[in-house]
Design a protein around this nucleic acid. Structure first.
Length: 965
RNA sequence: UGGGGUAUGGCUUAAUGGCAAAGCACUCGGCUGAUAACCGAGCGAUCGUUGGUUCGAUUCCAACUACCCCAACCA
């Protein structure tokens, strides 16, 4: 070997060696890693054999229609992050994924696939079979999507709400609630969708912009005055009307009262010109006189006034029917913000109307059928549709009666059926209700015992439960769990008893709820009711799907042996909209049956928005498809395949309690962050290629200060990371890990480490000690990122260059391992200061570099003056006179990556230099390094040329070649 | 309409009643032994707007604006 030839020593340098790819290559690599997890049954084994307690995160079932979107990914990955963290900490995590499979949306989706001829002859049971098929197919598709996200779960045994066992348990919940008296049948106004021909829950409504109602003002003739008003108002009688306002003229046939606010002042006004009615005087709220005059295009002159409460029990003539009704006292809901201050009240068509009607013992009149057509009870209006021709007919009739004051389009929010996108109406029908009133206090108490994250969730659900009215649980639809009731053919009396319930429950457990449609009443009835002299028919109402999913604590948690001991479960985790959905339905059923919440903790997340802060929606076209993030889009340049880890990293990076923005730029940045972590790990792996922890680990006591400082820093970082996971603040994890990789490792420790790793002989203490730290950093890094960057973590683990028995997977290796002894705040304080000095040194070096005097910092010699004596002596200990003495690590020249460092006695010696920087405490200057560049380590040294054998090498390298440095 | 939440450089996040921090991005430069990698320096924020409390407010208070979630009897 010609050792005078530059480059001769390249082969003697210990460069990194690893097959761990620089690129994630996620499309190929992630499935390989998932295959490994499956083959080794990592999740299954840990769930079963971990030493810790059970941990149950109970899955909220997504609705089994349609494709997965970003919201699904967000929710499932958040859950997975939590589960994996708990698994790494030794808990027996049992995660059973679920799907909500019943309900109108699926039914409609099935109907849409059929021709109208097919739809005609469709029996309920045929529809149910098709719906089940559709739901299960969707479950399969979604399940594959979730698996691809890297989410761990008992995918082979998910819960589906159409499962007979599930349905039977749900019947059980219903039965217990019934037997406790919490379920009743009632005639109540409910949201009714004529287009779906069913009652709807509040959760099934939407309020689109731009709905315009045909509002009208009308006057009803006052017949008799209440005693207190007889004298003052008597002169007006006969020509006096009460003025009302309504946005739903079709409800006037159901009018049974006019309500006033007891505390408002009302006036009798005389109508001026352009009076379209047969009345001369009107009663209106005094505050509205001017507004109304303007609106009606006339003058209104106040003739008398009274308090609202005195109007009570005045009577009036219904303008369209032969009916006399009363003025009644409504409530605070009656204001002078709009209308007339007197409210048309139809107890069959409004919630407030119903309540106030109950108070006055009014009947419930709802002359409208399932399709929204007026019934015979509506007299002349029979057959008209309330959403089409009923309104104009009512208006015309009022006009004829001389009762119409004004007609006016009115734009406001109006409830629509979320599936058919058609308006709904408020209509009293026979429905089944869960009496929230019956267990409201218990529910409120249960809420207090749950930990809500973030905290404001508690206020939110408390307010909702405190205010909510009884829960309408019946639906006039086929695709669902039947309400297990029989009706007496003769009396229409419902029949539900403990016997019928358990009989039906047993049948459904065995045959599924299809049995309700397939079996005869005879078979469905328990024996003692078959020949008791009565005849029964079964009811064909189904349960609200919120009752399905709201029973999952019973149908899944209590029903499965592997979960049973963990009710209430550790945690529910869903979007914050579920305060009114699943969190609430689950709470209500659980409280009703068992008196407590089904969960100990409820964690909620926000919703995804785009990079402009707008919500993602189909119409805006700004939605992000998780499958495209993973596999790339049609144009892979514009939409590269990032893999599931990027989706997961995104979720960890943002504050999920708030809106979560995602878009192309953010994805690209996250990809860069992953690359940084990956490459940092790659460097660590490469430099451990010849490290055997069993033999080569350097004891803590023997480590140089720099390494001990790094171990201290590692305890800080991973304690912070642990705390972040414990408190579900994943963005702190993201920031901390990123910072650790970039600032502590890449920019600092690893940059300095290269000289130790490459230049020293393989077995040198200064190299082995560094590798000791690298191994600790790498293993902890892999563990710490495993809940989030699961694939990357496993990829790293699989490339560890040494044996890690008995762990085939990073997930088996447990959570980060830190030693108390590594904490050394005193040492850390010193090294933090040294790092600050290093930052300043970089600035001076940059001056020289900018002036092209140096390129690499090794071409420089750094001159340092410090004012403080104590600090000066510290620096002196870090600046030995030659490279052989000292511990060969804790030296300023290595810290600053310069070939030499000189401590000088006076600031002046430095400040006059060409490149200098100073403060009160210190002065730094840069000069050319002395000596020649060593061909092996690239440091400059006056020792180069001194060795006859190695004329191109410095003293360190000569020793290193000889195994001594 | 009501309730709740959020608002910090281009992006994602910190912190604090007293000079607003980090990473990324960007610009310039270096290295060529982590190389589609790595290192250095620099630029960049009147802390959503307007008031108030205070010696001093990005921080506390109020109003407003924008966005997000939820609710809703405008009869």
């Amino acid at each position: 070997m010609a050792l005078t030839e530059p480059g001769s020593y390249k082969e003697t340098v210990n460069l990194p060696q690893t097959k761990f790819d620089m690129r994630a290559n996620a499309v190929k690599r992630e499935p390989e890693i998932q295959k490994l997890w499956n083959e080794e049954k990592i999740y299954e084994t840990l769930a079963q054999e971990n030493p810790g307690e059970l941990f149950v995160l109970h899955d909220g079932p997504p609705y089994a229609n349609g494709d997965l979107h970003l919201g699904h990914a967000l929710n499932k990955i958040l859950k997975d992050i939590i589960n994996k963290y708990q698994l790494l900490n030794g808990r027996k995590v049992r995660y059973v994924p679920g799907w909500d499979c019943h309900g109108l949306p699926i039914e409609l989706k099935v109907l849409q696939t059929l021709k109208s001829s097919e739809r005609q002859g469709l029996t309920p049971i045929a529809l149910r079979k098709k719906a089940a098929e559709f739901a299960l197919e969707t479950v399969n598709n979604q399940r594959e999507g979730f698996k691809r996200y890297g989410v761990w779960a008992d995918w082979e045994h998910p819960y589906v709400t159409l499962d007979p066992q599930y349905e039977a348990a749900q019947i059980g919940v219903f039965g217990e609630m019934f037997l406790k008296g919490y379920i009743y049948r009632g005639l109540k106004p409910v949201y009714w969708s004529p287009s779906s021909r069913t009652a709807l829950a509040e959760a099934e409504l939407e309020y689109p912009e731009g709905h315009t109602s045909n509002s009208l003002y009308a006057a009803f003739e006052v017949l008799n005055l209440a005693p207190a008003l007889q004298t003052p108002f008597d002169p007006f009688l006969g020509e006096l009307g009460v003025a009302i306002w309504t946005t739903t003229p079709w409800t006037l046939p159901g009018n049974l009262a006019v309500a006033v606010n007891a505390d408002l002042v009302y006036a009798v006004v005389e109508i001026g010109d352009n009076n379209p009615t047969r009345f001369k005087y009107l009663i209106v709220a005094k505050d509205l006189v001017e507004t109304l005059a303007e609106k009606l295009g006339t003058t209104l002159t106040v003739k008398a006034s009274t308090m609202g409460k005195l109007l009570e029990h005045c009577t009036y003539q219904h303008p369209l029917f032969d009916r006399v009704s009363e003025i009644i006292i409504g409530g605070d809901y009656i204001t002078t913000e709009s209308g007339t201050g007197l409210v048309h009240t139809a107890p069959g068509h409004g919630q407030e109307d119903y309540l106030v009607g109950q108070r006055y013992g009014l009947p419930i009149l709802s002359p409208v059928d399932d399709a929204g057509n007026m019934t015979e009870e509506a007299g002349p209006f029979a057959g008209l549709n309330v959403l089409k021709d009923a309104n104009p007919a009512v208006v015309a009739a009022l006009q004829t009666a001389g009762s119409l004051l004004k007609e006016e389009p009115y734009q406001h929010k109006y409830p629509y059926d979320w599936r058919t996108k058609k308006p709904v109406i408020f209509r009293a029908t026979e429905q089944w209700f869960a009496s929230v009133a019956g267990f409201r206090d218990a529910a409120l108490k249960a809420i207090k015992e749950v930990k809500w994250i973030p905290e404001q969730g508690e206020n939110r659900i408390t307010a909702m439960v405190a205010e909510r009215s009884d829960w309408c649980i019946s639906r006039q639809r086929s695709w669902g769990v039947p309400i297990p009731v029989f009706y007496d053919e003769e009396t229409n009396e419902p029949l539900i008893t403990a016997e019928t319930l358990s009989h039906i429950q047993a049948i459904i457990a065995e045959k599924g709820s299809d049995a309700w449609w397939e079996m005869t009443v005879e078979e469905l009835l328990p024996p003692q009711y078959r020949n008791n002299g009565r005849t029964y028919r079964q009811g064909f109402d189904t349960m609200d799907v919120w009752f399905d999913s709201g029973s999952s604590w019973a149908s899944v948690v209590q029903a499965r042996p592997e979960l049973r001991d963990r009710y209430p479960v550790d945690i529910y985790l869903e979007g914050s909209d579920q305060h009114r959905g699943w969190f609430q339905s689950s709470l209500l059923t659980s409280v009703a049956v068992n008196g407590h919440a089904p969960y100990k903790t409820v964690l909620t997340h926000g919703f995804t928005i785009d990079e402009q802060g707008r919500k993602m929606s189909k119409s805006l076209g700004n939605g992000i498809d998780p499958a495209v993030v993973i596999n790339g889009g049609k144009n892979q340049q514009q939409e590269p395949p990032y893999g599931a880890d990027i989706l997961r990293l995104w979720i960890s990076s943002v504050d999920y309690t708030n809106d979560m923005p995602l878009g192309k730029n953010i994805l690209k940045q996250l990809n860069d962050v992953r690359s940084k972590i990956r490459n940092t790990a790659r460097f660590l792996l490469g430099n451990l290629h010849d490290f055997d922890p069993a033999k080569d680990t350097v004891k803590y006591e023997d480590l140089p200060e720099l390494d001990r400082y790094m171990l201290h820093r590692i305890t800080e970082v991973f304690t912070e990371v642990t705390d972040a996971f414990e408190t579900y603040q994943f963005s702190r994890f993201f920031q901390t890990v990123q910072n650790f990789c970039v600032v502590d490792l890449s920019n600092f420790y690893l940059d300095i480490a290269k000289d130790r790793l490459y230049i020293s002989s393989a077995n040198a203490e200064r190299r082995r000690s560094c590798q000791t730290v690298l191994a600790i950093a790498l293993e902890n890094l892999a563990k710490a990122i495993a809940p989030v960057l699961s694939h990357l973590a496993e990829d790293i683990w699989q490339f560890l260059p040494y044996e890690t028995p008995p762990y085939k997977s990073v997930f088996q290796s447990g959570w980060v391992r830190l030693e108390e002894a590594w904490k050394n705040p005193t040492l850390a304080e010193k090294w933090v200061k040294l790092r600050e000095l290093r930052t300043e040194a970089n600035k001076v070096l940059e001056q020289a570099r900018a002036a092209k005097d140096i390129g690499s910092s090794l071409e420089a010699k750094l001159l340092i003056y410090v004012a403080d004596d104590a600090w000066k002596s510290v620096l002196q200990t870090l600046n030995p006179s030659d490279s052989q003495s000292g511990n060969r690590v804790d030296e300023l020249r290595y810290l600053f990556l310069t070939s030499q460092v000189e401590l000088v006695e006076s600031a002046d010696l430095v400040s006059g230099m060409k490149y200098a920087l100073s403060s009160e405490a210190w002065s730094l200057g840069v000069a050319d390094a002395e000596g020649q560049k060593c061909d092996r380590c690239w440091n400059y040294s006056t020792h180069v040329g001194q060795s006859e054998e190695h004329p191109l090498l410095c003293d360190r390298c000569v020793e290193a070649i000889d195994g001594k440095f």
